[in-house]
């Protein structure tokens, strides 16, 4: 390995915005571990990982959309509707694979509609996905008449919800997150689609001139986000063992926050899968620390707001600092 490439690697690591937030997390965790001894226990770490699964799935999907220069406000309610489909179909005695397939189809289909509205009808992404938020949320409410869906749990579903462990502390959703994260990362970094996705997000006019079919790439990005929302919904229905109609509300904000904390940019062209996971971890850690340290729960929203701004600031400061320390070659 040549010196040049190893220096390049080091520079890249230094400039990596994820490092900033990781440093912040490490410092915070160390401090909390001293204040609150139960924080660093195996049990608590498992809890945190289990609790971050839902947001992780959503954040990975959101990251793909953000890379393409879009925004998806509908993930929470699409997740809720998918969870409703899975739960209701199971409760009606439909076999599990079929029920899950339907849920995934609903999620992906709604994502597709988002993409079509945005690219073919020229509706701004904010508005299209905001409308989808009310549509999917309203559909679940109307379908359930506001009554939580119950009575769909079965032994395998407890595993999918992460309530039963496979081996040691490992649960199915943990394995699933790893599989999905690796797959999406490979697609983003090594496939033609990935290259085009980043190109579209960086400059759709540029991509258009370069012969990329911008519309197709964008539609695919929204479909992926819808698919991930459905995965999150199937998992969450298993974790909560009941699907209240409001199950997805507010999750879009967590998903966006996680993706952006992880380095994705709302301007497009930036973002990584590992960042999404780090973002999900940050949000989950914050809530866990508030609960453990006995901070009055009314402060929760304030702290999360501050963490959000601080995390983005840390990202930016880190990359500024790195650029200052070692000017980027070229």
């Amino acid at each position: 390995m040549s010196t040049a490439s190893s220096r390049g690697w080091r520079t890249r690591a230094l400039q990596d915005p994820a490092i900033g937030i990781l440093v912040l997390l490490a410092v915070a965790s160390t401090v909390i571990a001293f204040i609150e001894p139960t924080f660093a226990t195996r049990g608590n770490v498992t809890n945190i990982i289990n609790a971050m699964m839902t947001i992780s799935f959503l954040a990975v999907g959101m990251t793909v959309v953000l890379i393409a220069g879009g925004l998806d406000l509908s993930v929470g309610s699409v997740m809720g509707l998918s969870a409703g489909v899975a739960a209701n179909f199971l409760a009606d005695g439909i076999p599990m694979p079929l029920a899950f397939l339907c849920a995934l189809a609903v999620g992906t289909g709604l994502g597709l509609i988002n993409g079509l509205l945005i690219t073919k009808l020229g509706v701004p992404d904010f508005i299209a996905t905001l409308a989808m938020l009310s549509l999917a949320g309203g559909a679940l409410l109307y379908w359930t008449r506001g009554v939580p869906i119950l009575g769909y749990m079965s032994e395998p579903y407890y595993y999918i919800g992460g309530l039963r462990r496979v081996v040691g502390p490992i649960t199915i959703p943990m394995l699933l997150v790893v599989v999905i994260a690796v797959t999406v990362a490979i697609v983003l970094n090594l496939s033609k689609f990935g290259v085009k996705l980043y190109a579209v997000g960086s400059s759709s006019t540029g991509a258009l001139h370069a012969g990329v079919r911008v519309d197709r790439i964008k539609i695919a990005a929204y479909a992926i986000s819808g698919f991930m929302a459905a995965v999150a919904g199937i998992h969450l229905a298993g974790r909560t063992t009941t699907v209240p109609p409001s199950i997805g509300s507010g999750y879009e904000i967590s998903a966006i926050a996680a993706a952006v904390i992880g380095g994705a940019s709302l301007l497009g062209g930036k973002g990584r899968v590992v960042g999404a996971l780090i973002g999900a971890l940050t949000l989950t850690l914050t809530r866990n620390i508030i609960n453990l340290t006995g901070v009055e729960s009314s402060w929760q929203a304030v702290v999360i707001g501050l963490v959000l701004i601080l995390a983005v600031l840390a990202n930016q400061t880190w990359s500024d600092l790195a650029r200052f320390v070692r000017p980027r070659p070229g």
């Binding site: 609150e36 139960t38 226990t41 049990g43 608590n44 809890n47 609790a51 969450l236 974790r239 909560t240 063992t241 009941t242 209240p244 409001s246 199950i247 809530r287 866990n288 609960n291 453990l292 006995g294 729960s297 009314s298 929760q300």
Partner: peptide, 25 residues
């Protein structure tokens, strides 16, 4: 020995109870 806001919904109640149970054995 501990209290939390569960927002009247099951998953928040679940997470809150899980955290509180971790802290208090």
């Amino acid at each position: 020995v501990g209290e939390a806001d569960g927002g009247y919904v099951r998953d928040k109640g679940f997470t809150a109870a899980q955290d509180l149970l971790t802290k208090n054995n």
